[in-house]
Structures are given as structure tokens and as C-alpha cells.
Design a binder for these strands. Structure first.
Lengths: 216, 216
DNA sequence: ACCTGAACACCGTTCAAGT
DNA sequence: ACCTGAACACCGTTCAAGT
């Protein structure tokens, strides 16, 4: 033990986040993280069951600085600000952003943000079950859009081709102004669609008494 | 070369799909796929640049049997049927479903399905740029929901906890009927939210002449 | 010129050997 | 009892050696 400070889960997660931000996702191996901490790779296993558990902690740590939206704002504005802030926070840590997008938000910060979302959706007028489902839909969309942003920006040029390929299809008129896959614009547009949809769903609940929203 | 048939990209992709369906995603290594074909692992590299390119071909192959929706149906029903069929097709191939969810749909079948989506969105009244953006939002949502279904079903019990954890939060009243993350119900609900949102977006286009839909 | 397979530079994790 | 690090069973890919 040449490190002066003792090994803790938090300290390990911080070191892993540092390694990922500096050297990219593939560098976040148990061996490299241990090297960053100047400890034996196996020492990490005394604080985390396996690599997946360690990365979950790192993903949650990346959400630590997501601010909670102004409680005085309208429910839809609150959701928009929060989900956008999650995307921004993840993109500030490119090493772990892909993992944030692929794992359940069950860490301390993930649960905190989920509670804010649920409160906003309940305020919108959704019953509990639909609020939970709407939250999961928002999480799913945010996760995928985030994963696309990461892939398009750092790893995979093929995502950039998607807009071009589809704009060139028979059905698409020429001259369409394209938005890059994974861009902030594209993210905001899809988020608006979902919030539109939630608003419509909530309207059915509160506006029409005998509505049967489950019917197709 | 003990195999009677010659190596082709299609034949390789079929063998890889078989391996993945039989032994799961981790089994889809270059070595195992080569063993399935009774050829040298390096022989695969003469048909695919790298493993990622091979998996892209497998993911597209898994979309081969997605039927095109009835052209006579309404645009929103067409989108719902198509996106649901993509999910079903991917889940029939658990080995590659996760990859389907993480990669751009740029293969032959992905482009075919994208063209159907674009046509439906254009019919809805969206201008080209918004149709492309809406398609990308649908792809993002479907990919993430699919990834969650795969993770929840085969790999990761933590996704199952999400509904329970959030239903137990202060904001959520008790007795909420929970839908399992990744379930068909949950998928359909989120898809309906997006289609609701697209309908609202299209309504702004056609219904209100001087609307400024980009304003928050 | 083409193809093969040994070798390189890694992995996550197990487990026996040390203290 | 605790900790370490050698070892196991793999990877994707390179590249030199064979034919």
C-alpha cells in the first residue's frame, strides 16, 4: 500500500471516473483503475462484487452534480430541464456516459432524480402507474439519445450517416435541414415529443371523465 | 477447409446469429463464430473489417423478417405496428438484440424499415426535417426499450427493481399497478406517448398557420 | 499472392500460496 | 484472518511464416 489514503468505494469510483475521462471507456479496466490507485487489482473486489458493480457506482457518481430544477416551475419545464441536465452531466464524463445510458438509475443520485421526475408527472395529473411508466419512457429515451450522442461523438461515425442516408431515401424531399444524430437539437426535439405525449395523456385523465386511454 | 460450402458474408452472419441464439451474446466471439463455421478465425477478417462490422451484419439479418405494415392503415397505426414488430424480431434473437439496440440501422433491412417510417411521418404532415427527427426519436426510444427488455430478461435483475424502487418513493402513492421494465406493456405505453407527441406536432403544422412550434 | 496460425497485448476473475 | 499476485480461460487483432 503505497497510497497514503485508505481504499473506499467512493475513492475507487472517483479514480475510475478520472481514468475514464482521461483515457476513454476501454481504459476503465480493473487493472488500469487499480494502477491509478496504486493498489492490487484484486483489492477492488473487496469493495465491489464485480466490474459491473463498480461501473454502476461510477455512473451514479457522474450524476452527482445534476441540479434539481426550480420547484416553482411548471411540471413539464421541470422535466425538460432535469432530463437535459442529466444528458449534460453524462456528456461531461465521456468515459462513463455510455454506461450511464445502459444501466438502471438505482444509485443514490439516480433515485433522487427519479423522485423529482415522479413528482412532476404526478403533478401533471397522471395516476401512479402511468407516472412510473412515463418516467421509464423518459429514462429510455434519454438513455438512448445519450448513447447515440456518445457513439456519434467519440466512437462511431456511422451514426452521423443516419440522417444523410434517410434524407436520401425516396420518401424524403430534398433540401431537408438535417440535425445531427445525438445533437442537442435532436435530443430536445424528441424530448418535446414525449412531453407533448405526456401532456395529452394527462389531459385525457383530467379533461375527459369517462375516457378509456388504453384503447387503440 | 473442411466445410463444403464457401465462406460468404451472409453465411458468416447466419452462423453468428445461430451461435448467439444458442449460447448468448458473450459467445459471439470471432473464435467461436469461426469454430461454428469450422474455419480459421482470421478467415472472418477477409469478409468483415472487424468484429463490429460482423455484428452489424448480424443485427441487420435479425431484422430480415420484420413485415412491412399494411399501407392502407393510418400513419400512426403503421408506425405502432412497425416499431412493435422490430422489437419482436429482435427479441426472437436474444443473442444479437442488445447489439440491434446499440447500432445505427444502416443495413439493408434497417434502411427499408426507415423508409417506411419516414413515409408514415410525412403522411402525418411533418416537414422533412421534423420527419427525420421524429424517426430518430422513435429509433432511440425503441432501441432503449429493447435494450432494457433484453437486460431485464436475460442479464440484469436490477432493471426489475426500477419499478419497485420508484413506486416506493415518497411521491408515489401506494397500490400503483406496476409494469415490469422492458415488458410489452411498458413498451407500448412509451410508444403511445411518442405517437401522441408526433400527432400534436403534426397538428401544429397543419392546423395552425402561424404557429411557432420551436418556442418553449 | 494467398492463407494460416502463432503470438501480442490485453481482459475479468479464481484461488492457492503467502504473511 | 487477511491480503496478494500468479494463474486460468479467455478476448480482438497483428503479422511473420508458410504454401
Amino acid at each position: 500500500m503505497s497510497r497514503a489514503t485508505a481504499l473506499t468505494p467512493d475513492r475507487i469510483a472517483e479514480a475510475a471516473l478520472r481514468v475514464g475521462d482521461r483515457d476513454g471507456p476501454p481504459a476503465m479496466s480493473m487493472r488500469r483503475i487499480a494502477a491509478e490507485l496504486r493498489c492490487d487489482p484484486m483489492a477492488l473486489y473487496r469493495h465491489f462484487a464485480d466490474r459491473e458493480a463498480l461501473l454502476d457506482a461510477v455512473a451514479d457518481l457522474a450524476m452527482a452534480d445534476v441540479p434539481e430544477p426550480d420547484p416553482a416551475a411548471a411540471w413539464d419545464a421541470r422535466l425538460r430541464v432535469l432530463v437535459t441536465a442529466v444528458r449534460d452531466a453524462a456528456l461531461r464524463h465521456p468515459g462513463i456516459a455510455g454506461h450511464v445510458a445502459s444501466r438502471p438509475p438505482l444509485g443514490a443520485h439516480g433515485r433522487r432524480l427519479g423522485a423529482v421526475m415522479l413528482a412532476a408527472l404526478t403533478e401533471a395529473g397522471l395516476p401512479p402507474a402511468k407516472a412510473v411508466q412515463s418516467m421509464q419512457a423518459l429514462i429510455a429515451y434519454a438513455a438512448a439519445a445519450l448513447a447515440m450522442a456518445v457513439a456519434a461523438g467519440t466512437r462511431d461515425e456511422r451514426w452521423h450517416q443516419v440522417s444523410e442516408v434517410f434524407a436520401a431515401l425516396p420518401g424524403a424531399p430534398p433540401g431537408a435541414q438535417l440535425h445531427v444524430v445525438g445533437s442537442a437539437d435532436q435530443f430536445a426535439f424528441g424530448l418535446r415529443l414525449l412531453l407533448n405525449g405526456i401532456r395529452a395523456e394527462a389531459g385525457l385523465m383530467t379533461g375527459e371523465a369517462g375516457a378509456t386511454p388504453g384503447a387503440q
